[in-house]
Amino acid sequence: MADAAAVSHGHGTGTGLSNNKLLMWTFLGSECLLFGGLISTYLIYRSRFGDGPAPGDIFDIPFTSVSSFVLLMSSLTMVLSLSALQRGDIRNNRIWLLTTALLGALFIGGQVYEFTTFLREGLGYTTSPFSSAFFTLTGFHGVHVSLGIVMLMSLLISSFRGTLTKERSETVEIVGLYWHFVDVVWIFIFTVIYLVPSPTS
């Protein structure tokens, strides 16, 4: 009987896969249903803006494109940090982890700016079913990104404590899976919510 510790890297597990990675993937499968529900809610309500601003009036595509690009590139830096750690390159691992967290923070900053702009233009959380659905969907995504930043910073702290070594690269890989998932959700949101022409008033 292999004990729990020995199997965590995949040795002696029934599938030959690491427990931790499998856990993260089951979680990501579950998250699909969460974001699916929020996105569907938005799609049902996107034309129900009442007297408030319509999505087609208010979306700033060039601005959102830039922040989408930032998030997309953070996926690259994330994978580079993992790749560095797998080579045993602690320094580059830290640099890319930090870059990823900063790009994520930049994205969140963009979202805060977007929200405040919308608020100024008369789109509050309670304005219409559309506004509630929009803020809820993008807000949930923003919370996911923020949690990802917290995880990245925790990894960074762990690295400076000297515990994030080549042998533990799986931890970075798992946080990376979460990060890339949040990125692909945004790829979906960006196209379906922003780029597909929205109703105007």
């Binding site: 510790a5 965590s8 427990n19 856990l23 993260m24 917290v150 995880m151 533990r168 799986e170 931890t171």
Partner: peptide, 22 residues
């Protein structure tokens, strides 16, 4: 002596726990 293995376990737990928190 499998320190790295134990810690890995904790890290995945962390991820799930964070989601629980969220």
């Amino acid at each position: 002596g499998h320190h790295d293995d134990h810690d890995d376990d904790g890290a995945a737990d962390e991820a799930a726990a964070e989601d629980a928190e969220e």
